[in-house]
Design a protein around this nucleic acid. Structure first.
Lengths: 202, 202, 202, 202
DNA sequence: TATGAATGAGAATTCATTCAT
DNA sequence: TATGAATGAATTCTCATTCAT
């Protein structure tokens, strides 16, 4: 067999990396940074722990690269894009988003959420990671502000400072996702409807 | 010189123990069980790490005793009692409670909340601690159910299964307290008012 | 470069384990369980203390596995088998055994003896270890009873309850091995001959 | 009441010291030096652990002083003196001594034995303690040599180098005392009689 | 003289990281 | 690229010793 050419090698390398990062995201989300053992990531990825250090310099780099990678292919971002293009009312958009956030507890996107929340409450997080988390938060806010304004224009959403409303809307979702998403799984639509009453006119 | 008499010793012992437990609650709330270092509790309490083991058998006992102690003097419990006796409407009670929960972020009561949430999401927590956390949760639910029913009778609160309403009300507060209480400090009354709209009739 | 193949790894692993167990037996024999420091075993084995935990879960497991391993290759057991097949008189067998036991003071077999005695006089030894020690003791008794009976039939050994005789014979050897085997090295045959007079007719 | 005079104070002081030393001998005999906790001695003596340090500089001094004290009032020494004055045959003396040694397992004298044996097998024992142990050993040897010679003259004891015989006699007793005195308690006279057969003519 | 509170050195164990193969 | 052997820093817990009262 001819030796693999560089591109192919690069591909293999990338796939290995992705395999590790996918595992890392999952494990970091469950245990947080400090309590995540490299050996657990390795096990989850089905490789030896030594190999992790061929692709990443340190545990911290595993985290950082994994987050970056996860954000790039982020389903949430995709979901937001799709959402923005849907022909439904603003409040229906909020409903859909909330449902997505709470029900996707097993997907990468909620894992990212959880990791970022961990980081925000952790001391000694390196600057570039902190900045990263801020940016992610900002992305959401900037996405929802126009939707809220639109909702207010349509008379669906109450007349309050949109930033405050988005803030309430997102901190609560974020808190709930981190705290007890399980509770919401049953009768989710109904519960979300109640939840959104705080924002809607009648 | 005569040794200290029994009362004096008892006092020192009690005060030291409380001093340690107060520190422990704070540190456990910040870092969770596993990541809390005894040395940090000791530092926070201003004593040597060895002394902690003079008063407690193990890190786990520090946690358990501290939680028990904190629950006994629990401001939340006291607050609930006072609240139940106030001559205000049910919704106003919910408002007051929410405000108390979110504003007391620097006090012991929110620390307890946070610790218990940590424990609930942690594997390998010993049974007696798990039971403890369940009981605390139950206490809140049982306190609020009657208030919601009363509110529904008065036409202030929407006609939904009270258990579901209490569930939403408490999971959100709990999640928010654990996640980002800081955000709520500014303009708290206003934000709470919006928050409660999800429960209230118009 | 290719990683080591499975056989090579298995070899390294086994050799290291044996290297550690050999060191452990020696150190446990000298200091007993509690006072044996893992760091000392590691030093004796020429490795870092961390590596011990790569091969064993805990100090207790080091002890247990080492004993098990030592018993399997146990020279004493081998010696007993050989002894039983020798064409010599029962009393000569006792002589040979005693000599073996006392002269092998620097070998693994007396170390095992010593460790087991330590364990028998120690509180809080886990059950599986206790059982282990009992079995070893029983093995010896069961081996010697027939030899004593044979000696009695041949008129070489005095007519007393064989169990009592074996008991005296073994407790003394065991005590002496643990206490002061050095004293016996000089003129051993002569001393043993005197020792055995307590059992023999004339 | 008049204050106690100096002699009385000295007496109290001495009694306290003795109370501690008595406890210490017992505990050291059971656990050996390193594993003996000062707190356990204190408990056994019914005092606080702090008080031990009023009477002794260190754990080591507790051991040394206790041994010295125990040797001075030593029942064994007394027993030896009495024994030497008894109007019985040398072999009967050996029998009586053996019985005393093995049956006094609950008395101070066997505790001393055990402690000394511990020390002999322990590294890093300070010189003055080592010397002490040697002297004790010598005392026994010197006491028994004449008895053996007398026994040989009387034709009761076999014609061998008395030093060797005393050596065998004492190392075995010492070993057995340390190892498993319990086994001998039942039918002791009978067992001792067998034991002494190794020394006696027929 | 007496107590037990307080300290800190030392030992078991875990785990990120490096390295030989 | 891949493995897991090897190291050592960090953390929990114990206990001799000191000290305030």
């Amino acid at each position: 067999m001819a030796p693999l050419n560089e591109d192919q090698l690069e591909n293999i390398r990338n796939e290995r990396k992705i395999q590790i990062m996918r595992a890392a995201i999952k494990v970091f989300a469950t245990h947080g940074f400090k309590l995540t053992k490299i050996s657990l990531i390795a096990k989850e990825a089905g490789i030896s722990h030594g190999l992790v250090y061929h692709y990443f310099k340190s545990k911290e780099e595993v985290l950082y690269d994994s987050l970056e990678w996860a954000m790039e292919l982020n389903e949430t971002r995709k979901f937001l894009t799709e959402l923005s293009e849907m022909a439904i009312s603003p409040v229906e958009k909020l409903h859909k988003f909330t449902k997505f956030a709470l029900s996707s507890s097993l997907s990468t996107s909620s894992d990212i959420f959880r990791i970022i929340q961990h980081l925000e409450h952790t001391e000694g997080v390196p600057d570039h990671l902190l900045e990263f988390t801020k940016n992610v938060g900002m992305m959401y806010v900037e996405f929802f502000i126009p939707i809220f304004i639109e909702g207010q224009k349509a008379g669906e959403i109450i007349q309050e400072d949109p930033e405050v409303l988005v803030g309430i809307f997102l901190t609560i979702i974020s808190g709930v996702m981190a705290d007890d998403p399980g509770w919401w799984q049953e009768n989710m639509d109904h519960k979300i409807a109640i939840y959104l009453r705080m924002l809607t006119t009648r």
